[in-house]
Each structure stands twice: as structure tokens, then as C-alpha cells.
């Protein structure tokens, strides 16, 4: 996989999520493009690279989403989404053997799983941080449970957006430089029996 292509696409997607993302908002729930990009990469790149690349995407997502502290100042915490994306990637990578990768519906299902896991892990890490540091969480004044509820709906939005995004990314596959390996095994069909 070409890292330069991945980094540019991830940052470009983050910028689009931060601006054009409001177009996809329904009833206070907004789908994002970034999870679909990460899932597309996870379904094609080697496992070790996929997890590291997902961490990088998580870092970019953290940098684009500052939180407001109780005193009205801003804070960027790079880390929660890094871990959440890594765990999301670890959940998606084993699905490669089960999914038909070039089918956008497969990517959409994998994106739902990825986003759901990312959302839950992200909320969990913030709760841990809040408990340890006695600080407020980004969803203040709402509760962690309501945030998880929102993340579930957002995962549905991400999955819906993944349909066109993965179709587009599939067209750009040569650009990514994924190494394609084919395993040919002998069988009745191949031998013409």
C-alpha cells in the first residue's frame, strides 16, 4: 500500500467530513466518510499495515475534532480514536475471508461494525479518562449512554455513506498500490472433470 496516497486521502476525507459532512446530517445524527476509507483499506491491505494505518487515520480524526472544556477553552486529545480505530481495524481484518471485498454491500456491513466498535471504544476511553482525571467528557452535558446511542445511529449513517464511497474507492484501487496475491488450488472444476 502506498502510504502517501493513504495519508492524503485520509486528511482530505477529514477535511470533507468537517465541511461537507453537514449535508449528510439527519435529525442531529451525521454520517462520516472517514470510516468507509479506513474499512476499504483494512479489507485490502496486509493486517499489520492495516492496523497501523487505522491508527494514523484515528490520529487525524482526533486532530480534526477538538473538545470544549468546562472553562470554555479548547483541547485536542490525540489518542482515544487512535485506539478505537486500531480495535475497529482488528475487528474488520478477520472479515476479509468472509466478505466479497469488491461488493460495496460488504464494505457497508464492515463499516457499520467498524463504526459501532469505534464509537463504543471511544466512549469507554473517555469515561476512563473522565474518572481518572475527574474531568468532563466531550458529550457534556449529555450522558455516556446517550452518546453510545448516538454513535449507534451514526454507525448506520457511516454504513449508508460507505456504499458510494467504497464504490468510488474501488475505482481508485490501482492508485493505492495494494499487492494482489492469488492462491490457485487444484480442484475438480479446474481439472475439467
Amino acid at each position: 500500500m502506498r502510504w502517501s496516497v493513504f495519508i492524503i486521502i485520509v486528511l482530505f476525507t477529514c477535511a470533507l467530513d468537517a465541511s461537507l459532512g453537514a449535508v449528510f446530517e439527519i435529525g442531529g445524527i451525521r454520517g462520516q466518510l472517514l470510516p468507509a476509507v479506513v474499512v476499504f483499506m483494512c479489507l485490502a491491505a496486509p493486517k499489520r499495515i492495516a492496523v497501523r494505518a487505522a491508527m494514523l487515520a484515528g490520529l487525524a480524526a482526533d486532530l480534526f475534532a477538538p473538545m470544549v472544556l468546562a472553562d470554555g477553552t479548547l483541547l485536542v486529545v490525540p489518542g482515544p480514536r487512535v485506539l478505537a480505530f486500531a480495535l475497529g481495524a482488528l475487528a474488520v481484518v478477520p472479515l476479509r475471508g468472509l466478505l466479497y471485498r469488491q461488493n460495496p454491500l460488504s464494505s457497508s456491513a464492515a463499516t457499520f461494525l467498524f463504526s459501532l466498535l469505534v464509537g463504543i471504544v471511544w466512549v469507554f476511553l473517555w469515561i476512563i479518562r473522565s474518572v481518572i482525571l475527574s474531568s468532563s467528557a466531550p458529550w457534556w452535558p449529555a450522558t455516556g449512554a446517550s452518546e453510545v446511542f448516538l454513535r449507534v445511529f451514526a454507525a448506520v449513517g457511516d454504513a449508508a455513506l460507505a456504499l458510494p464511497v467504497c464504490w468510488l474507492l474501488e475505482k481508485s484501487r490501482p492508485l493505492w498500490g495494494f499487492r494482489v496475491t492469488m492462491r490457485v488450488s487444484p480442484g475438480a472444476a479446474r481439472q475439467g472433470l
Binding site: 497501523r52 491508527m55 486532530l63 477538538p66 472544556l69 477553552t73 479548547l74 483541547l75 485536542v76 486529545v77 490525540p78 489518542g79 482515544p80 487512535v82 485506539l83 486500531a86 476511553l125 476512563i128 479518562r129 481518572i132 482525571l133 474531568s135
Partner: peptide
């Protein structure tokens, strides 16, 4: 990388604010 991410996630505001916002 995961350990670094965990440590940074759990750092207090005073340790993060001087550099993360600028980054």
C-alpha cells in the same frame, strides 16, 4: 504505538494543551 496512544489519552489537560492544539 497503542501504549503511547493510551498514555497520551490519559494525560491531564495541562500536559496536552501546550502542544496538541498547535499540532
Amino acid at each position: 504505538l497503542a501504549c503511547v496512544a493510551i498514555v497520551i489519552s490519559m494525560l491531564p489537560v495541562s500536559a496536552l494543551k501546550p502542544w496538541t492544539n498547535d499540532v
